[in-house]
Simulated scan of single mutants.
Amino acid sequence: MTLEALLSPRLSLCHLAGSSKKKLLLNIAQAISEQYPDLDSDTVFNQLVARERLGSTGIGEGVAIPHCRLPGCERPIGVLCTTSPAVDFDAIDRQPVDLLFALLVPEDADQEHLDTLAEIAALFSDSRVREKLREATTSDELYALAINSAAAA
């Protein structure tokens, strides 16, 4: 699945507020619920937190990819965020996170979930992509940079 199919300008959130991992996940869940009213923000939040309890989705280099399968979700949904300041996310390299890509997929989308996670992780493994995204000053710019970076990859 392409990044453009996963992400929308309204779910590209530059400088998302949040002083902790849980607060960031709550704000992401609320943003998703605003764009997809059929998805309850409490359910989204609880599923994201449940996944984090299995192990941090902080993959290092200031990046986290919180994700979950979600009952009632009809198609994969992505949320791209930058934060300022960076937040402790229990990442594998112990570095705080300032770049997140949250992914929600339908409950039965096992292989698609894994494939999409691998594509996102590969994109964020490129230091040039991470730097470009961190330099975005508006949500529209963040969205455009992400789509262009994915298309060039």
Rank of each mutant, 00 (worst) to 15 (best):
A64Y: 12
I92Y: 13
E61D: 15
C68N: 05
C73Y: 04
V105M: 06
E107G: 05
R130Y: 06
S56K: 14
L117H: 13
R134D: 04
L100G: 01
A102L: 04
G60Q: 11
C73L: 03
D126T: 05
T82D: 01
S56C: 11
R130Q: 12
E52C: 10
S56T: 14
L54Q: 14
F45S: 00
E112F: 09
R51I: 08
S56I: 06
D110S: 11
V63M: 08
V97I: 12
G58H: 14
H67M: 11
C81Q: 00
E119L: 15
E135I: 02
G60S: 11
S84Q: 10
R75E: 10
A118K: 12
L54G: 08
L54F: 13
K132S: 10
I120K: 12
C73G: 02
A121S: 15
H67F: 13
D108M: 07
C81F: 05
L133I: 07
P96F: 06
L104W: 04
L133V: 03
A102C: 14
E131G: 03
A122R: 15
E112L: 15
G58T: 08
A122I: 03
R69T: 01
L99H: 12
L123S: 09
A102E: 00
A91L: 10
E107I: 09
A86T: 06
E52R: 09
T137Y: 03
V105E: 05
Q95N: 08
Q111A: 13
E112I: 14
A121E: 11
K132M: 05
Q111C: 06
D115K: 15
Q95G: 00
A121C: 11
L54P: 02
V44I: 13
R128N: 07
T43F: 12
E61Y: 13
G62H: 04
A109Y: 15
E135Y: 07
D88R: 09
E112T: 13
T57E: 09
T57N: 11
S41L: 03
I77A: 05
T83G: 00
E74Q: 14
R128H: 11
A64L: 07
P106C: 05
L123K: 08
R69K: 15
P76A: 10
V49G: 01
T116H: 09
